[in-house]
Design a binder for these strands. Structure first.
Lengths: 206, 206
DNA sequence: ATAGTTCCGGAACTTTTCGTATCGGAAAGG
DNA sequence: CCTTTCCGATACGAAAAGTTCCGGAACTAT
């Protein structure tokens, strides 16, 4: 009853095959999109057999998801000394990631699939959404500690506004992103600074 | 040589077939999503032959696009008397439209396709994005005329922020939208009101 | 009325793609 | 040496997109 044989026996998997598959998926996603991507094309470009792919991923959906999130953690930008500077840097990080054609095409196609697949939605939330929300919260906490903000803002709302604005700017309006970070950061900064419960009529003042 | 026969001859198209196809597409999009939608399923549910579909739309993409935007013009909410009220109403309209499972699934899947199809992207912009941006501009102009805003804000940025925030809230964060309109309107209103080029140091004053 | 045109639902057909299975061979452990 | 698992290659069945034909119906022009 002692579970001992933890190391697998048999020929081990070739890590170069993993890398070739991931690279092929990303290239093809950028070129032909999610619906245009075929398993045979992935196998051909990666120079592997289809069996090698299905040994790793059960479905095309799973393969694409894995390739899309492979090491794609948005890092929190370093403390710039001001909320406006931090927000500008954050916007630049998001724009940078979403400007990658492979990542953007994958993200949008995945969003379409998510509406009908609760399990995929759950994984997406844990892998993508939660870490980014936590990063945003950290950035806002710095501003509170700095004294730029009196209290902690509505993190959920800020997260939706900031990420959603970049998403909409790039993929719905399809504008040039070159000066978006400055404009968006100024907009968000203004909103956060004047986040008083009741604006002009100061009914309660300690 | 006189071009006279402008009215088509032969059996006219049955408008009930158009309606049945559109309804079937929307129902199926909500149930199985874009990639899960098949032409055979549309034909079966609509109770029509596939030939009737292909007589109207050349491709699946075109059919879905047509069904998605069928009379889906976001109307500008009536003047509520204040910018905050107008923004809350606008957010409610957007949330209402995007909460429809058929419309939301369609929109997201379409976004994924758009990344690899410039022609589709162009049509999407003209049909969806431009009218909504114009509606936002009208709403902001009311606030300027009312005196709530000193000058016209950055409409492109506002449009991306407002729509993008709802999009992200619903489909990326996947939160409950019931109190989003109020929170988002307050956030955006605060940003718009304090949109001064240089905040405290009033260097130029006429 | 009748001929010509276009529509209708239904069904057969071709091509493409997903996912599985099978093959000979290679790389690891027992 | 033997078992297991991997490898690339290929073949296969099921499903689905898109095309095409059918017999019949509806509408226009003559």
């Amino acid at each position: 009853m002692v579970e001992r044989a933890r190391q697998p026996i048999g020929r081990p998997r070739d890590s170069r095959v993993d890398e070739a598959i991931t690279r092929a998926v990303r290239e093809l996603l950028a070129e032909v999109g999610y619906t245009g991507l075929t398993m045979d094309a992935v196998a051909a470009r990666a120079g592997v057999g289809k069996a090698a792919i299905y040994r790793r991923y059960a479905t095309k959906q799973e393969m694409v998801f894995a390739a899309a999130i492979h090491g794609e953690t948005l890092e929190v930008p370093p403390d710039s000394g001001s909320l406006l500077g931090d927000l500008t840097a954050l916007a630049r990080v998001i724009v940078g990631h979403l400007s990658n054609p492979a990542a953007s095409g994958t993200l949008l196609s995945l969003l379409g699939e998510i509406t009908t697949d609760p399990a995929l939605a759950e994984r997406f939330t844990r892998t993508f959404v939660e870490p980014e929300r936590a990063g945003n919260a950290e950035l806002l906490e710095r501003a509170v500690r700095r004294g730029e903000l009196e209290r902690m803002p509505d993190v959920d709302l800020f997260h939706a506004v900031f990420g959603g604005a970049v998403l909409s700017w790039l993929f719905i309006s399809r504008h040039d992103p070159h000066d978006l970070p400055e404009r968006l950061a100024r907009f968000a900064c203004a909103a956060l600074r004047s986040a008083e419960p009741h604006p002009p009529t100061a009914e309660r003042r300690t």
